[in-house]
Simulated assay, not measured.
Amino acid sequence: MAASMISAAPILLEPGFKFRPTDEDVVVHYLRPRAMNEPLPSGCIVDVDILSHNPWELVPEGSVEKYYFSRRVPRWPLGNRRKRTAGDGHWKASGKDVPIFSKGINGRVPMMVGLKKTMVFYRGKAPFGENTEWVMEEYRLAEAGLMPSHVMRPREGRNLGKCGCAAAVIAKKNDELSEALRNAIASLKKVPVMVKPDDSWVVCHIYRKKKKCAMPRVFAQTYNIAGGGQVPFFDFIGQGNPERAASSSSLTGPPIEKENDDTDGSTNEKACSGEGK
């Protein structure tokens, strides 16, 4: 169901374009406008109920990551904790929240506008479950990001009564409305209205962890030194080649004690013979 939902409305991007927003872009240009019901810069992020799906159902085939708008659902009516049960398992927080700052304008001090929480998906019921490779970064508004601001909204028209704003929303979604109603809505004057962002909205960045590549094994060898100690020797050149390893070990090995004894004996014999003469 989720796969069909995602593939039903594909997003056509220009060749070579990749949606790689920064944390500040996600909070300032996407999350805050969505929380204030304002137009978005693009349709790359859509609304999805994250808790109704498994993470592998939300990432389309051929993609490695995906961004979604979603709402946080409280676990209890008067509590601050949120529901984390989703699909066949649950999301578990990993690490501390990371603050997100917006760059200051005209030399001003950067302000914190949001927080990012990293979570890992577990199969099964909490607090137990099987750890998976799926990760979600949840972006939410905080501090300056939750400050209300003036937004242009249509004024309630006399000919539409108090339903002017609702009719304006319907006109955008329904193409079968009469031309007279469209013209009446378009003629409405917009006035600034103080709007407070809805803090239940979040942006969820879902992706799969990359598997770590296995490092090549290094074989250690030891040899005796004059003092009798053991010194590790790493054979990087002869690794994987037994003949070369044998030759390299013979070249790098210490001299044999027997040869030292023979040389010492020969010198002693020569010295003795010289003294006799």
Rank of each mutant, 00 (worst) to 15 (best):
H205E: 06
E179K: 07
G62Y: 04
F234S: 04
K258Y: 08
M1G: 10
C44T: 10
R244N: 07
D88P: 00
P110A: 07
W134V: 03
F128Y: 12
N183W: 01
V73C: 05
T85G: 10
E38I: 01
G89W: 04
R123D: 02
G228L: 00
L58A: 11
I100N: 03
I185K: 04
L160M: 13
R72Q: 14
V73D: 05
L78Q: 10
N37T: 01
R108M: 07
V28R: 06
S187I: 00
R140M: 13
A9S: 08
K83H: 06
N224R: 08
A86Y: 08
G229I: 03
N106W: 01
D262V: 15
K210N: 14
K117D: 06
K116H: 02
A93R: 11
P254I: 02
R71S: 07
F101T: 00
N183D: 14
P77A: 10
V59E: 07
T132L: 00
G265W: 12
A126T: 10
E137Y: 06
V27R: 07
F101M: 15
K103S: 13
G228K: 01
K209Q: 15
N260K: 12
P77Q: 00
V202D: 08
R84L: 13
N131Q: 15
S94C: 09
A144M: 07
I45F: 04
M111N: 01
A166I: 12
K258P: 05
E143H: 12
T85N: 12
V193Y: 04
R71I: 03
V46S: 13
D49A: 11
Q230N: 04
P154H: 03
K277D: 14
E14I: 01
K211V: 09
